[in-house]
């Protein structure tokens, strides 16, 4: 298991190596990538900010939720903070399970819960301005 908030590029293969083992027939890895557009506007780059002392325990809690539902799962998650360019990886969730069905489900659980409960915020630098993204809303900076 590994749960990290990092300022350097995330290597998804490294997280897969954390969860791989002889009994795991399936590894499902979700990678979140910085996109060049949002809400119909072009995006130049993002800044992510985390409450790291809380984010890591919240990630561990999600890992435990996965273990409660899929006891054979192994989980690794990392989220990057700071300045990210288009095409860079912002978040990775890797889950191994004996079979693919539970690996897909557990990985989806992991990224969905991370997006709703881990205190990490995104500031979007877009053609129409700079915004904090709060759930479904974008709030102008300043």
């Amino acid at each position: 298991m590994r749960y990290d908030v990092v300022t350097t590029p995330i290597d998804a293969r490294e997280l897969e190596a954390v969860v791989t083992h002889a009994g795991a027939g399936a590894i499902c890895t979700f990678s979140g990538i910085v996109r060049d557009n949002s809400r119909g506007q072009s995006v130049t780059h993002l800044d992510y900010e985390a409450y790291a002392e809380m984010a890591v325990p919240q990630m561990k809690k999600i890992g435990q939720e996965i273990k409660d539902r899929w006891p054979e799962a192994r989980v690794a998650m990392a989220h990057r903070t700071g300045h990210l360019e288009i095409g860079e990886v912002s978040v990775v969730v890797a889950v191994s399970c004996p079979h693919r069905q539970e690996a897909f489900e557990a990985c989806k659980w992991g990224i969905d819960r991370l997006k709703e409960s881990v205190p990490i915020w995104k500031k979007e630098h877009a053609a129409d301005g700079t915004f904090w993204i709060e759930g479904d809303e974008k709030k102008p900076v300043g």
């Binding site: 992510y48 997006k115 915020w121 709060e134 759930g135």
Partner: peptide, 12 residues
Amino acid sequence: VAFIPPVSGGEI
């Protein structure tokens, strides 16, 4: 004590 705006979410 921390005061926290809604987290980023993201479209599914």
